[in-house]
């Protein structure tokens, strides 16, 4: 598999490490339901068959955290952008 890093271009999978679901946002720690929201955030994951947004870390490259949209059925990479939201 190959990933299109916004900084480095198309790179081999072996340069990256995988974290997982990029759809969950870190909850507000001061919210009244913080305990259950953090439990969901830390442990509950959807495992969709089809397009999914995931975090990948370009550890052996530019060290950017990427948000990658990948089809989990076909491994087709639909998009990849910097997780920081910055534009290169």
């Amino acid at each position: 598999m190959r990933l299109p890093c916004p900084f480095c271009g198309s790179r081999d999978l072996s340069e990256f490490t995988y974290l997982g679901d990029a759809t969950a946002a870190r909850p507000d720690p001061d919210a009244p339901d913080a305990a259950s929201a953090f439990f969901d955030y830390a442990y509950l994951r959807d495992n969709p068959a089809g397009p999914h947004r995931e975090y990948w870390y370009h550890a052996q490259g530019c060290r950017s955290w990427l948000t990658v949209e990948r089809n989990t059925r076909t491994h087709e990479i639909l998009s990849a952008s910097l997780a920081s939201g910055n534009v290169q």
Binding site: R26, Y55, S64, W65
Partner: peptide, 17 residues
């Protein structure tokens, strides 16, 4: 060492850009 580095990068780039 590597894990802490990637953890800091995650905090800096993803959680609090």
């Amino acid at each position: 060492a590597a894990k802490a580095m990637s953890h800091l990068e995650f905090a800096r780039q993803v959680l609090w850009p």
